[in-house]
């Protein structure tokens, strides 16, 4: 007997009926996969894109930009 073999004496495989029933219960949802959340780099890129978009909108709607556009329209 190995040094610690006796400590495995209480191990036992789970009951197959229990295993099957539990699996059915937890996989009742349509997808039987785990979706892992975004990686930190991907999250950073996403946030950068959102920030860039917000800045573009802000600049486009600024009084200075509107005045320039208005002047251009009048000149035309």
């Amino acid at each position: 007997m190995n040094d610690d073999t006796f400590l495995y004496a209480y191990r036992r495989p789970p009951d197959p009926h229990f295993a099957a029933a539990l699996y059915r219960r937890i996989s009742a949802e349509p997808r039987v996969t785990i979706t892992v959340s975004f990686s930190p780099l991907a999250q950073f890129k996403r946030k950068l894109n959102i920030l860039g978009g917000a800045l573009a909108v802000l600049v486009a709607l600024s009084p200075d930009t509107r005045t320039k556009l208005w002047n251009k329209a009048l000149a035309f």
């Binding site: 539990l22 785990i34 892992v36 975004f38 990686s39």
Partner: peptide, 21 residues
């Protein structure tokens, strides 16, 4: 794992079979 990958799919069947016991 590719850091740019938006999502990673883990095979729940394999995870369940391995981890349940």
């Amino acid at each position: 794992m590719n850091a740019d990958t938006a999502t990673q799919i883990i095979d729940w069947n394999a995870v369940y079979a391995e981890e349940l016991p």
